[in-house]
């Protein structure tokens, strides 16, 4: 337990001093500010563009347009930022050999994995909450008292998908021992899930639906039952992949 606390402290120090925490917080803060702003300004932006006499009339933006931007941004740019900032969390330690000193001092190998998973999860959670809170505040300011259906599940879903990305980065880092391995593991998984998603029957079960599809839940077009199976599968996958990562690291020659 002492080793876990010590290593977790080291992980946080590393996140602060390598600007990982700062970069992620700023990116998500900007996404939080941008989403309602873009929704608000979209009609002005479009009407300001000379389309050669064609006039496009857009309906007055609503809170849902702001949340549509939010889910779009978080699901794409946000996930990308998350994956890039944490890509080295495991891979760099292994490729540089910085764990050798600590492991030969008797630190348990699972301590490393659990501590890294905890740190990354906390930073991701805080960044995501920050983004959500800012977006919520602005949205409430521009379009007060909008009705949100199933807000818990709608906002929980992208967070859960982010957790899947984190555990994939750790597992990829262990399996391949370098940055590219981590990034490719995530990329391959996302591409595979996207391909599966071509079949509309898979939507309900596919974790990738959680990344940016839950706007339909928030605006009431879809029901919680349409997303719960995917959320359960995603959560189970996170646990299984975490256990696999620990088992793989126990066998890894460092």
């Amino acid at each position: 337990m002492r080793a876990f606390v010590a290593f977790t402290k080291k992980e946080f120090t590393e996140s602060v001093r390598s600007y990982r925490l700062f970069v992620l917080a700023v990116v998500f803060l900007l996404l939080g500010i941008m989403s309602p702003l873009v929704a608000k300004l979209m009609p002005d932006l479009i009407s300001g563009t000379d389309l050669g006499g064609v006039t496009i009339t857009l309906p007055e933006p609503t809170a849902m347009d702001s949340w549509a931007q939010f889910f779009g941004n978080v699901g794409q740019m946000g996930m990308l930022a998350l994956v890039i900032t944490f890509s080295g969390i495991m891979a760099t330690e292994l490729s540089r050999g910085t764990l050798v000193n600590l492991l030969t001092k008797g630190m348990k190998r699972h301590t490393v994995i659990l501590s890294k998973f905890l740190t990354a999860s906390l930073i991701w959670t805080v960044s995501y909450l920050l983004c959500m809170a800012v977006c919520f505040a602005y949205t409430e300011y521009y379009w007060p008292a909008a009705t949100l259906h199933e807000p818990f599940l709608a906002f929980f879903a992208p967070w859960l998908f982010g957790m899947l990305m984190i555990v994939l980065l750790i597992l990829g880092g262990i399996l391949f021992g370098n940055l590219y391995g981590s990034l490719l593991t995530c990329l391959t998984t996302v591409i595979a899930l996207s391909l599966i998603n071509i079949a509309s029957v898979a939507h309900k079960y596919n974790p990738i639906s959680l990344a940016s599809g839950t706007l339909n839940l928030l605006n009431g077009h879809m029901k919680a039952a349409d997303f719960i199976p995917a959320a359960i599968i995603c959560a189970v996958a996170v646990v299984i992949l975490l256990v696999t990562a620990i088992a793989a690291f126990n066998k890894k020659q460092v």
């Binding site: 002492r2 080793a3 606390v5 010590a6 290593f7 402290k9 080291k10 120090t13 590393e14 001093r17 390598s18 540089r96 050999g97 910085t98 050798v100 000193n101 600590l102 030969t104 001092k105 008797g106 630190m107």
Partner: peptide
């Protein structure tokens, strides 16, 4: 154990690194 090329966390200072090691042992 002293590895042939010992690797450290470059963002730490020597005393900080030894504290981390001390807490681990």
């Amino acid at each position: 154990y002293l590895p042939d090329v010992p690797q450290f966390y470059g963002y730490m200072r020597p005393a900080e690194y030894l504290r981390l090691c001390g807490e681990i042992v």
